[in-house]
Design a binder for these strands. Structure first.
Length: 504
RNA sequence: CGGGGUGUAGCUCAGCCUGGCUAGAGCGCUUGGUUUGGGACCAAGAAGUCGCAUGUUCGAAUCAUGUCACCCCGACCA
């Protein structure tokens, strides 16, 4: 509520991001290091994402369950790559009781030391596969398609609200399959769910494909990802889907009897997206006036501002506003809105000036604002303002009230499409093809962006490039032109171009 | 974890270098009034353990040491 304008992107990009998080009321830092408080408007964004994703998971045959927050240390150690990958960021529970010490306050009771230490989940593969051991006996138990919505904790050194916090919210899918082919198909299918969600719901264009060896999930055979470009041209990993092979089945001795009576290890996948998506949403669409939420994700899709000076004017505006809200809510539910009614809010805050109220709603990212004042009431009309075109340019005047509901729905759809098109045009304009390492090294600094380059497929070359340029391989894209060539660094053969970028 | 910076009212900050009476401003908040189509105005008012701890001193927001948190840059990072 304080102050007026937020920092512009040109002035200071990361301050702009923090200003939006703050002024749009999305989240704040808590008194606990690295852990954020997600505020109502930020949480509402997450709920919209959850609703759309959960529906998609159910449609692809998955069910939800819940597994414990605490994992015995020994489970965690069973899968070597994973233990190694996460060891440095695990919080450990060592005691189960406090005691009051006169004069010193509350202390950990040394008598209450746990026999086996517990770690707070950084991800749940181990506890889940330890459980699957009891659930899977026959090929008839497969596939097992489970998802959980949960919090996880990774002790990050440096945190940024939503993008990297110690505790965050996510969903993690964990599936078990009878055959390798089926598990691989699942891995690809869920990546596709994420792609559709990112592009059609969040209006965020993504590249997709496998990660390089060096960037994959610890414990996975390979990792598929969706990767988006933020407005500062840096890459953000927005979702991952892992083919885990039989690694966890072997580590936890999970076996099933196939239809010919033989014992086999099942094949596994896991896949997740997190509250990081809220950061992605902000940095994909927002502008110097504040947040821009794509209509399908916006917690408030339409705000109707009733305006007026005299009590009678206010009453008339408010009454028209409420009628319009009712008409909007009465529209048939449709897929575009995830079969919800349109989320409408009537703003009757007459204490603040119209300008103040318009700016506040723009800060919060509401896609469509309707203004109804005395001039509109007089002609039984209203003004429509679209958030993706701030100021007067984005306004349509004199829309008859009886036509407004359908015009608003059209507008929401148009904004959704426009945001995607804008973001895609930006990404495409900042995606470059480079042939030589010299050219790459120069252009990664300026102008920056995504670079399509040939790479020999080795870890050494990848590490060398990362060390020298700070750019990493974001993904080996499956939705971009694909041709063989020679590695820009070593000159060795390369099957296809990969995407290099600086990333979050 | 390394380098740098900052912690004073809900927010942004001044005061600190050079210690001194009762700690200030703007915004926000409360009350009353006037206002209202792109961030209104007047008046009155409430609000601060000066991040925390210890030390130096007759006296500490101010000096010293420690500690915690946050921000920026690195390192690290499904």
């Amino acid at each position: 509520m304080a102050g007026e304008k937020i920092t512009t992107r040109a002035q200071d990009y990361s301050q702009w991001y923090l200003d939006i998080v703050n002024r749009a009321g999305l989240a704040e830092n808590s008194s606990v290091r690295g852990c954020m408080v997600v505020k109502p408007h930020g949480y509402a964004l997450w709920e919209r994402m959850q609703a759309a994703l959960d529906r998609m998971f159910k449609e692809t045959g998955h069910v939800n369950a819940y597994f414990p927050l605490l994992i015995p240390k020994s489970y965690f150690a069973k899968e070597e790559q994973m233990a190694e990958g996460f060891a440095k960021e695990c919080a450990v529970v060592t005691h189960y009781r406090l005691k009051s010490v006169p004069g010193k306050g509350i202390e950990v009771d040394p008598e209450a030391k746990l026999e086996e230490e517990l770690i707070i989940r950084p991800t749940s593969e181990t506890i889940i596969w330890n459980t699957y051991k009891n659930w899977i006996q026959s090929w008839r138990d497969l596939p097992l398609l489970i998802n959980q919505w949960a919090n996880v904790l990774r002790w990050e050194m440096r945190t940024r609200l939503f993008l990297r916090t110690a505790e965050f919210l996510w969903q993690e899918g964990h599936t078990a399959h009878a055959t390798k082919a089926e598990a691989e198909e699942e891995t690809a299918k869920m990546l596709e769910v994420y792609r559709v969600f990112a592009e059609e719901w969040m209006a965020m264009p993504v590249l997709f494909g496998p990660k390089s060896e060096g960037q994959k999930f610890p414990g996975a055979e390979y990792t598929l990802c969706i990767e988006a470009m933020m407005q500062d041209k840096r890459a953000l990993q927005a979702g991952t889907s892992h083919f885990l092979g039989q690694n966890f089945a072997k580590a936890f001795e999970v076996m099933f009897q196939n239809s010919t009576g033989q014992l086999e290890h099942p094949w596994a996948t896991s896949w997740g997206v997190s509250t990081r998506l809220i950061g992605a949403l902000i940095m994909t669409h927002s502008d110097d006036q504040g947040l821009i939420a794509p209509p399908r994700i916006a917690p408030v899709q339409v705000v109707i501002c009733a305006l007026g000076k005299e009590a009678a004017e206010r009453e008339a505006s408010l009454s028209a506003a409420k009628q319009l809200a009712t008409a909007l809510k009465a529209l048939p539910r449709e897929e575009f809105f995830n079969f919800d009614t349109i989320a409408v809010k009537v703003d009757e805050d007459f204490h603040n000036t119209p300008g103040y109220r318009f700016n506040e709603w723009e800060l919060k990212g509401v896609p469509v604002r309707v203004e109804i004042g005395p001039k509109d009431v007089a002609q039984n009309a209203c003004v429509l303002a679209r958030r993706d075109q701030p100021g007067k340019e984005g306004k349509q005047f004199g829309i008859p009230l009886d036509q407004a509901p359908l015009r608003i729905v059209e507008l929401l759809k148009s904004i959704q499409a426009n945001l995607f098109a804008k973001a895609k045009a930006f990404r495409d304009a900042n995606t470059h093809t480079v042939e030589t390492y010299d050219d790459f090294r120069q252009k990664i600094e300026s102008p920056g962006g995504f670079f399509l380059a040939h790479w020999d497929g080795t870890r050494e070359t990848e590490d060398k490039i990362a060390a020298e340029t700070k750019a990493t391989i974001r993904c080996i894209p499956k939705n971009l032109p694909n041709e063989p060539g020679v590695c820009m660094v070593t000159g060795r053969p390369s099957a296809q171009r990969v995407v290099f970028a600086k990333s979050y």
